Amino acid sequence: MALDRWVAFVILCAAMAYGYAAFFTMDALLPPFMQRNPIWPSTFPKVLAVLTIITCLFILLGLEKSEDDGKEPDIDYRRLGDYHLSQALGLLALMVGYALVLRPAGFLSATFLFLVLGSVTLGERKLIVLLPVAAFASFVVWYLVDEVLGIFLRPWPFFL
């Protein structure tokens, strides 16, 4: 079985567990006044689980490949060294670092640093464009989450 099908199988297993939690365990603890609402807190997880399961089955059954496609697969697990593995692992390390630094450094600075370092890791070299775009994106996301949605995000480091 090709690498893309193995990845789809692993994601399918995770999506089935997620779907089970969304369909059978999340709604059991709803208060009575919320049980009459047309949209529950589990609505988006249910939709996400169903769409993920459908997509994974689509890949597992090979429906995304055309019949005249006789060439080698797109991803060859025997040649993983030929891909940009260091960039992918670096980006994963940055994600873990972002999660660890988010609270003490504050949302704005942690997000700005993650966007800048992630872009540099992936090969962006135009800092004159990168720095203002990262600052603007960090501020817009913070503003939408904090001010529009009303979910508090500490914008600055803990010592300010």
Rank of each mutant, 00 (worst) to 15 (best):
L51G: 05
L117C: 09
S86Q: 13
M26S: 04
T121N: 10
L94S: 04
L51T: 06
L113P: 03
L48A: 13
P38T: 12
Q87W: 05
F23V: 14
P41I: 06
F44M: 06
Y20T: 04
I75N: 02
L60D: 03
L92G: 06
V129Y: 10
A49V: 06
S109L: 15
L94H: 04
A28S: 13
L102T: 02
F58T: 13
A93E: 02
H84P: 05
A22Y: 12
A14G: 09
I39D: 02
S86H: 12
F24W: 15
Y77V: 14
K71P: 01
G81L: 06
S109D: 08
V120H: 04
M34N: 11
L80M: 09
L122V: 04
L113S: 10
S86K: 12
Q87L: 02
L102H: 07
S66E: 13
M16Q: 03
K65A: 13
A49M: 03
V120G: 02
F23W: 15
L12I: 13
Y83F: 15
S42C: 08
A15Y: 03
L100A: 10
L80F: 09
P31R: 09
P41A: 09
L108V: 08
E72D: 10
R36C: 05
G118Q: 04
A49P: 05
L12W: 12
G106E: 11
L30G: 08
L80V: 02
I128G: 00
L89T: 07
K126P: 06
G62E: 04
R79E: 06
P104K: 12
P104I: 01
A21L: 14
Y77M: 12
T52S: 09
E67V: 01
S66P: 08
V120M: 11
H84W: 07
L85N: 08
T43L: 13
P38Y: 15
F58H: 00
P73Q: 05
P41S: 13
K65C: 04
G70V: 09
K126A: 08
A22P: 03
A22E: 02
D76N: 15
A17T: 04
K71L: 10
G81V: 00
D74P: 00
E124C: 14
G19N: 00
V129T: 10
F114Y: 01
I59L: 15
F33N: 12
T111A: 03
G19W: 00
F112W: 06
L57P: 00
P132Y: 06
L12R: 13
V101Q: 06
I54H: 00
L57W: 04
L108M: 03
Q87N: 09
E67H: 10
L102Y: 11
V101T: 14
P104A: 07
V101P: 03
P104F: 05
C13V: 14
Y83I: 02
K126M: 12
A105R: 05
M95H: 01
D76V: 14
P38I: 14
V120L: 14
A17E: 02
C56M: 00
A99H: 01
M95V: 09
T55E: 02
I39E: 08
L51E: 07
Y18T: 06
D69G: 10
L29I: 13
P104S: 02
E64K: 13
S66G: 15
G90M: 13
L102Q: 07
G118N: 09
F107L: 04
G62S: 10
